[in-house]
């Protein structure tokens, strides 16, 4: 089975994240880049499927030069090879542009299964997997907490508001995963060393047959008009329970007319 995992580099959520004042896009230099958390679960699921069914796991990441750190991390976990979609023309692409660029790269790489995280920690649009399924004409098996493949059929449990749906489809398919699905492995020392020698192919816009007028900031379908730091929350009151903590909390709620 030919599995492609989409992995995004995102700013560390533990650091202060910002937008750039010049073009209002994410300031990727202001914070350390890390693997989007859920994408580690996507990589783990791909590795488990490969271990069970054979095949190959390819990491696909669209991002600036420093996204190679993220690609190496996924390779160190055990993926076989990687494709880095990297071109200045892609900078500032919105969700439509990004999904278009990634779908073109996927067509070039070829796949039986594409696995994504269900959401990134920076933009959090949660739309990419659905957009890829639409663009590729492939079944959408998103928000999966369980994935089973048998021959060319695939079954997932898709989490819903009321529990979950059991969903069936045929490969090739697009899957996105939630964190309930597995526990990602830590890269071993051996894995980290091996990752340094694994092939990473860089694709530019022309290589992936991406129409330049469909990507990048200027071609985006949406734009940021302006932005500002949110006013900080007014400091609250914290008391120590001296046996009347619950009663004090009730007084607070009453003062706010909740009770």
């Amino acid at each position: 089975m030919n599995i492609v995992v989409c992995v995004k580099q995102v700013p560390d959520t533990a650091t202060e994240r910002k937008l750039r004042s010049d073009d209002k896009t994410l300031d990727r230099d202001a914070a350390d880049g890390v693997v989007n958390e859920l994408d580690e679960y996507a990589v783990e699921e791909a590795l488990r499927l490969k271990e069970a069914h054979g095949g190959e796991v390819t990491v696909l990441s669209m991002g600036p030069a420093k996204a190679t750190e993220t690609i190496r991390k996924a390779l160190a976990m055990g993926a076989d090879k990687a494709v880095h979609l990297h071109d200045d023309a892609l900078h500032g692409s919105d969700a439509l542009g990004t999904s278009y660029a990634i779908s073109q790269a996927l067509k070039k790489i070829g796949f039986d299964l594409v696995i994504l995280g269900s959401e990134s920690t920076d933009a959090r649009t949660g739309m990419l997997a659905a957009m890829l399924a639409e663009r590729l004409g492939a079944p959408q098996l998103t928000l999966a907490s369980k994935v089973e493949v048998e021959g060319t059929s695939i079954r997932v449990e898709r989490i819903t508001d009321y529990g979950y749906d059991k969903v069936e489809a045929s490969l090739p398919a697009v899957v996105s995963v939630v964190e309930k699905i597995n526990e990602p492995r830590y890269p071993s020392f051996k894995g980290i060393m091996a990752a340094k020698k694994k092939p990473v192919e860089t694709l530019g816009v022309a290589d992936a047959e991406i129409a330049a007028d469909q990507v990048g900031l200027a071609s985006s379908w949406s734009e940021v008009v302006d932005f500002a730091a949110a006013p900080p929350r007014a400091a609250g009151t914290v008391i120590k329970d001296e046996g009347d903590g619950g009663a004090k909390a009730a007084e607070f709620l009453a003062s706010k007319k909740f009770i």
Binding site: D94, M127, A130, A133, E134, R135, S222
Partner: peptide, 18 residues
């Protein structure tokens, strides 16, 4: 969000999330 994402692709329209 997923419905909106697919609709955006189908109608070649921009989408604002959340």
């Amino acid at each position: 969000k997923e419905i909106a994402g697919r609709l955006a692709v189908k109608t070649d329209s921009g989408v604002i999330s959340d």
